[in-house]
Amino acid sequence: MQINTPVLEISHLMKRFGDNVVLSDISFTIGEGDVTCIIGASGSGKSTLLRCINFLEEPTAGNILFHGKDAETEWKRAEYHAKVGMVFQSFNLFNNLSVLDNCNSGQIRVLKRDKKASTEKSLMYLDKVGMAPYQNARPAQLSGGQKQRVAIARALAMDPEVLLFDEPTSALDPEMVGEVLAVMRDLAIGGLTMLIVTHEMSFAREVCSRVIFMDQGLIAEDGKPEEIFTQPKQARTREFLSRVLAR
């Protein structure tokens, strides 16, 4: 397997909520341009892993290196967040701001871009996800799929190096899943480094360059999608896949 320049290195990451160990010991490296999908049953720790990488949850132990420097201590938090973006299951668009202002807010407040440059960038990405015509709408006026596309544009407007997707299509009506996946497919082709927690197996299979299967807070299997989906080595991977693919 071709190894790209490492961007994110996660080593011995552990997360405990009280006595409940959600992530036991997670280590893996993401290279530039990798599109990695994380699959696994509910409660296997997929989302928690993503939230730990973005420090929305504080890891109990372990390190995250971004470009070889510790993300928690050596990177300024705001800078790290700007470079490692996140797209949420529940979109989390800022309800008090218009579509355009949602995309501008981070650029203006965090990256200190001026309004004109921000707007230009926002519109470029809103255009890319097909939402530029809705720039004046408020989040409450959009459908789920539209909201998620705006959320992706908002994340992209920060010029991230890595984008984390936490089940981006799980809260969508089936008919809207396609439009969001199409945008993500475009980004993958464009060479963006992506780490995607998803239940969309066909998407994982077609678009991802690597699939990580998580089970009970551990990485159970890690490999190319064709390997994982056609000849999984672990019994629990087989069991999981037969359950979700049988639907």
Partner: peptide
Amino acid sequence: VDKGQKEAAHAIGMTHWQSMVNVVLPQAVR
């Protein structure tokens, strides 16, 4: 105000103060 609002603000690099002033408080005050 939904917790996700604050998380999204943090996820694009806003500080506690920035996320409060720009995102959470305007909704809370409403």
